[in-house]
């Protein structure tokens, strides 16, 4: 029996996943989380075989959470469950250390196949995204997170930029990162200066184009 941690900010989805996984008789859900911080803490505590992780989450997104979680619980294997099916999301997820990428659907067959494959040490991509992923690899044109454009930014500036791209106000960013409002404003000015843009729309465009943020998703959408 493989142990699983479920990480999704929708209770309704977690309930559905828990029911179907437990009904399969192959998996035991040992924890649930709805924020990145909770997921990392739960993984460190329960050391699950598998983690089912949504890609689009409030605060820390699925990519960042995967990196953090694998640092705390390196033996766990992460399977990303996502509404996104674009090349950049898949590439970023796999680069962050995920072992599987499953498109959210109304049926469970794909997810169970992914979990079985990954639990046995394999890698799984939903059929809908595997062709796109291979095409990216073939052409070598997928965007790099450590892009030259963003290389001049500090880790804190990158965090602020992602939150700006999510549509958060300076006040909200200050609350999320536990900074003063003035400090956040300072980061905004520094970002605009370094990236030669003069508005939030410009920062958002760059954040998405460089793979720092995803369009339209909760928490990471813009």
């Amino acid at each position: 029996m493989y142990t699983i941690l479920l990480f999704d900010d929708h209770q309704i989805v977690r309930d559905g996943l828990r029911a179907l996984l437990e009904a399969s008789g192959e998996f035991q859900v040992v924890g649930e989380a709805e924020t990145g911080g909770q997921a990392v803490a739960a993984a460190a505590r329960t050391r699950p075989h598998l983690v089912v992780m949504d890609l689009s989450l409030p605060g820390m997104d699925g990519i960042e959470a995967t990196v953090e979680l694998l640092r705390e619980s390196p033996q766990s294997k992460v399977v990303i469950l996502s509404m996104y099916d674009d090349e950049a999301s898949v590439v970023q997820a796999m680069r962050s250390g995920a072992r599987g990428f499953v498109i959210k659907k109304a049926s469970r067959a794909d997810l169970l196949a992914a979990l079985r494959t990954v639990a046995r040490g394999g890698t799984y991509l939903s059929p809908e995204v595997s062709d796109k992923f291979l095409e990216c690899v073939r052409k070598g044109d997928f965007r790099r997170r450590n892009s030259p454009v963003l290389s001049a930014l500090t880790p804190r500036e990158l965090q602020v930029m992602r939150l700006i791209a999510e549509g958060k106000t300076s006040k909200e960013i200050a609350a999320v990162l536990d900074l003063s409002l003035e400090t956040v404003r300072g980061y905004r000015k520094a970002l605009m200066r370094k990236l030669s843009v003069n508005n939030v729309a410009g920062l958002t465009q760059i954040a998405i184009a460089e793979g720092l943020a995803r369009p339209a998703g909760r928490g990471v959408g813009v």
Partner: peptide, 18 residues
């Protein structure tokens, strides 16, 4: 659509399978 309608429909699908 992405954050609310999609996940709700996925959950309904899982419930139908259950």
């Amino acid at each position: 659509l992405h954050d609310e309608a999609g996940p709700a429909l996925c959950a309904a699908g899982l419930a139908a399978e259950m």
